[in-house]
Structure formats: structure tokens, C-alpha cells
Nucleic acid binder design. Structure first.
Lengths: 336, 336
DNA sequence: TTGAAAGCGCTAACAG
DNA sequence: CTGTTAGCGCTTTCAA
């Protein structure tokens, strides 16, 4: 499959490489005759420009990276879908990186492995520490997603986790619930995400004069519905009682619903349940799920905007966009 | 951020570019002294090899593309996660492409836009026609996923859809169900996927002497739980009755469960429901979902194997791997 | 074991 | 409006 090069097209058309290049890149100043001639040659030879060579020559890769822990998690899947669409519409390709549960992998994202491969990175860190983040910041523009502190000089986009946590807890309190469990934070090594949600949760309880019972903080050893089901199940079996469950995310909520159902506990009658992320399936669970709705569109768009500015050469201080959120009220914790 | 080049390292270390290159690429024949010297210089200057330049020089990109319609769909999300992990473990990066509902986009995947960007493509087509597929096959190695016919010479990996459809239909028949609806195929322009599942479905019904009632083929105008909920809801409201629903995929099944629940129809007592794909959430729906379980691991691994052989230069005829499947029996259509 | 130099395919000054 | 030419940063014969 001898590849056809710009050179070959030039010869075939009897013009210079520059002219072919001009045609390929839709340069304005090419005579119509020449243009059609060149186009004919391109067609005849089946020429396709080599993206790699172009990259090397221009220095722009036209590629962005999205790094999340695991795209099989519905929230990240929806985020990836959204970012991918946006990237395409703005003329970028999208490289997908999964960091799993490994801090190493998160570091590698920042170090960029081999650099020069992408113009910028949209990165939702899960486990890496703040100072690590700061240390590994490289020349490649980065926008941080999710929550947690960010090193100075780095752009971030996130919803106000603490406020959202407070709101959805208040929603539970308005329902008259007083023994509210928190489900799904990490048993060891609390993530920034969990920390913020917990903090809003506790603040709301305190403000309402409700008790914050440490026994009601049900940690899990994984971010998964299975782990949540297990944790909630074990708690119930040990005799623990509560009338509401604030779940760290929709997946934990799904596991919680499952644990409750298997034990004949009615939702929302006996226990009201809330999730976080408002992924599609929350509208199809049984019961449907009350959950925090982040404005994913706004989030994705902001991230792309900030990143494009950095790619475009912006060198200023870190910007911090707070994306809007709302509470999607459904059956698992209806309106009062 | 003046980039550090191989050249710079060479000068700093007082050796030639070739030597630095040798060190960077772990070439065997470099004297330990030289090596450590070079490594020191690399460290000192903070050198990172430029991937693009390397690509241009070697011709290998070290990148694979995965093209699916939409990664926010759970099955594709789980597929992408799996393929991404595999790709990483084999030393590739993964470019994510979403084709949405557009045949154009699917063509573009094959044409490769600008080529030379990836070594190979794993592609699950949704809408493109067979002859289109054949016409647009290019120099870039491709492995086709999903179902449907493939042009000669192209590698494919899929489960035996027709057989799986037959099996899960038989499961429903063993439960004594006789009026089985089919939910979720396209109203216009049946996809190859739907066609095969329908054909296995109908074959099983016929073999059992059950009736194939055209009124029970509930098409939807999108591949989504909403669309399925709508279609099933409309059918029920119009007085249509059935005792089982074979859903084209898990999302359609979720929508079906929802429609049934809203109308007080009990699952599985009144209507048994089955899905397809066995995505994570099927274990947490209420009721949990009986569904076709494709061996995703086998599927992903096979696709990678075939692709790597092609990338490695294999030019033989198309291979066709049939990945194993099974039926995951859960509450929505329990064992007889 | 290491060095010199010729590309990989394209872009972009700079001339013409 | 079009041609010439020098890189982009790395790999890779071929010599030394």
C-alpha cells in the first residue's frame, strides 16, 4: 500500500508542493483552474494527508486528552460522551485515558508520558494529592474537573459540592427525616469529592439541630453499587436504623436501594434515598432517584473553553468555574 | 517553555543524537558509563521525547481508535473501558470516536479523515450499509464489532446473535409465556443487530408453535429507555396484551420495566422481561434483569488480537471470531 | 560502541 | 498566485 504523498500529487498535477498544500488547506489564493487540477490529482491518486507529519510541522496536534478513572462508570461515560462531541465539533480528536485506582496513572497523565501528543488535557483526578498535582504540572495545558483543591495557576471546573450536599440534605430534612445515613465514601483515604459532600451534609444536619451520628457514616471499599449494597446491608443487619440515606453518587444509591429492597425496607416510606450525578438510569430505577443534577453541559463547555484559551496561549492565573447544579426530585425522596 | 530536544541532550552530554536515542529506546549496546551520563543529562534538562516526531520517523503511531455510536450508552461505556485498559496494557493509546446517528460519521471513521493517525481501528458500526463498508475500506487495519455482515477480507468479532436471541426466547417459552413482544428495534431502517435478534426470536417462537403476532413487534424511534418506555406504554394503553417482552437491549428493558410499573403490571408475574448486554445496572434494577450476557472480555481481547496481527502486517482473508455468550437469569424472567 | 547524515511528510517563510 | 527551501524532532542506515 505505497502511500501517496503531497509530493506525488504535486508531480502528478505538475505544480509545486506548496500549491497542493494550499489547496488541501483551503488557502484563499489559488486560481480555480489550478485548484481543480490539483483536486483531480488528489482524487486520482487517492491522496490523504498524513496527520503526523502535519503535526510535526505545525506543532499543533489537534488532539485533546480526557483522563478519568473509569469510563464504565455512568457519570464518566456521560461526561466522555459530552466532551467527545464538543471536541469533535471544535475540530479536535479525543484521546481517552483511564487512570483506574492508581495514583501512578494519574501522575503519568500529568507527565504526559511522551509529550507533544496532545494540545491539552481535561483531567478528573481521583486519588492524587494536591502537592503531587502541583509538582507534576507540565507545559501541556490542563483543566481539572471534579472537586477538590487545585494548585494555583491551574484552571478548574466543578459544581459547588458543599452547597449541593447541603441542599439535598436539607431536602431530606424537610421530609422530616432526622436519622440520615451517608453512604459510599471511601473507608480509607477519603477523596476530596467525598470530603466536600460529607462536609455539606454534616453542616446541614448541624444547622437543623439534627444529630450527626458517626455510626451512620457508611463507608465502602469501592466506588460501586456492589460495595454500597454490601455496606448498607451489613449496617441494617447489625440493627442500625435510619430514615434516610444520602448516597455519595448514583451508583451507591442504586446499591442502597437494592440492599433496602432485599430486606423489605420501603423507599421512600421507611427510608428516603438520594443519589448524586443524575445519570440517565436514575430516571429508570425503581423507585426513581432523587439526585443532585450537575449541569454537565455547562461543565463540559466551560472546560473546553478554558482549555482552548490555554492552548491558544493564555498564561494567566488559574480560573475557577463553578458550574450550576440543581436537585432532581423523584420518587426515592419526593417533595414534602 | 522552550522544549528540550534530543539534540540538546546530546550536546549537554557530549555525545551524538544517535547515542541519546539509543539510551532513550533502551538499546542494548550502550556502555554503562555513556548511558548513565546521558540519563543524567536527560534528567538535568527535563527532556521528554516528542511522540509526534517519533511517529513520523517510525511510521508507527502507537495509537488505536475505538469508534462507537455513543459512549454514554452503558454497553459501549463498558466496552470502551475494557478496550482502553487492554490497549494501555499492550502499549497503545486509545482515540475515542463517536459516530452518533450519522452514517456520514461512520464513513469518516473508515476514511480515517486524516490518515496516519492511528495504527488500527476497532469499529462498531450502527447504521452504515454493507456495501458502504466494503467501499470505504482503506489501508488502515480495521476490526468490526457487533453484528451484521461484514465485507470479505475484514475481521469481525461478535457473539452469535441469532442463537442468543433464540435461547433467551426459549427461556421465556419455558416459563409458559406465549404472547411475547419484541421491544426496541428501529421503526425505520432496521439495523443488522435488530434484524438478527428478531430473526432468532421469531425462529424460536415458530419452533415452539407459538404465534408471531406482528402487533407485538414494538419498534422505537431511538435506542433509549425513554423511547422503549413510550412504545410499550402506548401499546399497553391501546389495549395490547402480552405476557413477556424480549427487549433488544438492557436500556430498552429498563424503559419497558418502567412502563409496566406505571401501569401496575407486575414483572415477572404478569409480564416477564429480558434484556441484552448484561451491563452492570441490570443487577441493580428492580426487578433485576434477565439478559443475554456477551463475554465482553473475550470480545475485547479477540478484537485486540486480530487488530494487532493486522497492524503487524497480516494481509490474509478476514477472520471471524464468535465470542461466547450466556443467559444471565435474574428476577425479571426467572427459571421455570 | 558511537557518529554523521539522510530522510519521515508536511508547513511556512521568503522569493519570484 | 506559485515555487524553493529549510526545518519540525526523531530514527536509522552506513561508516568509523
Amino acid at each position: 500500500m505505497a502511500r501517496v504523498r503531497l509530493q506525488d500529487v504535486a508531480e502528478h498535477a505538475g505544480v509545486s508542493m506548496k500549491t497542493v498544500s494550499n489547496v488541501v488547506n483551503d488557502y484563499p489564493h489559488v486560481s480555480p483552474t489550478t485548484r481543480s487540477q490539483v483536486l483531480a490529482s488528489i482524487e486520482a491518486l487517492g491522496y490523504r494527508p498524513n496527520a503526523t507529519a502535519r503535526r510535526l510541522a505545525t506543532g499543533r496536534t489537534g488532539t485533546l486528552a480526557l483522563a478519568v478513572s473509569d469510563v464504565s462508570l455512568p457519570y464518566f461515560a456521560e461526561l466522555a460522551s459530552s466532551i467527545s462531541r464538543l471536541a469533535t465539533s471544535r475540530g479536535y480528536r479525543l484521546l481517552l485515558e483511564q487512570t483506574g485506582e492508581s495514583v501512578e496513572a494519574e501522575r503519568a497523565v500529568l507527565l504526559g508520558g511522551e509529550s507533544g501528543l496532545v494540545d491539552g488535557i481535561i483531567f478528573q483526578p481521583s486519588h492524587i494529592a494536591l502537592d503531587d498535582l502541583a509538582r507534576y504540572t507540565t507545559a501541556t495545558p490542563v483543566v481539572l474537573l471534579g472537586e477538590g483543591d487545585a494548585p494555583e495557576g491551574v484552571d478548574t471546573v466543578m459544581i459547588d459540592n458543599t452547597a449541593a450536599a447541603r441542599e439535598i440534605t436539607e431536602h431530606l430534612l424537610h421530609l422530616g427525616r432526622r436519622r440520615v445515613a451517608f453512604v459510599g465514601h471511601e473507608a480509607h483515604g477519603l477523596s476530596a469529592t467525598s470530603r466536600q459532600r460529607l462536609s455539606g451534609f454534616e453542616a446541614a444536619l448541624r444547622d437543623a439541630g439534627a444529630q450527626v451520628d458517626p455510626a451512620l457514616l457508611l463507608a465502602t471499599d469501592a466506588i460501586s453499587p456492589e460495595a454500597a449494597e454490601h455496606a448498607v446491608g451489613a449496617a441494617l443487619d447489625s440493627g442500625l436504623r435510619f430514615d434516610a440515606a444520602f448516597c455519595r453518587d448514583d451508583l451507591a444509591a442504586l446499591g442502597t436501594l437494592s440492599a433496602l429492597r432485599r430486606r423489605g425496607v420501603r423507599v421512600p416510606d421507611d427510608v428516603a434515598v438520594t443519589g448524586w450525578d443524575d445519570v440517565t438510569l436514575t430516571r429508570f430505577s425503581n423507585p426513581t432517584l432523587t439526585t443532585v443534577h450537575p449541569d454537565l453541559d455547562h461543565l463540559a463547555r466551560s472546560a473546553m473553553d478554558l482549555l482552548e484559551e490555554r492552548v491558544g496561549g493564555y498564561r494567566g492565573p488559574g480560573r475557577h468555574v463553578v458550574a450550576p447544579h440543581s436537585i432532581s426530585v423523584r420518587e426515592s425522596a419526593p417533595s414534602a
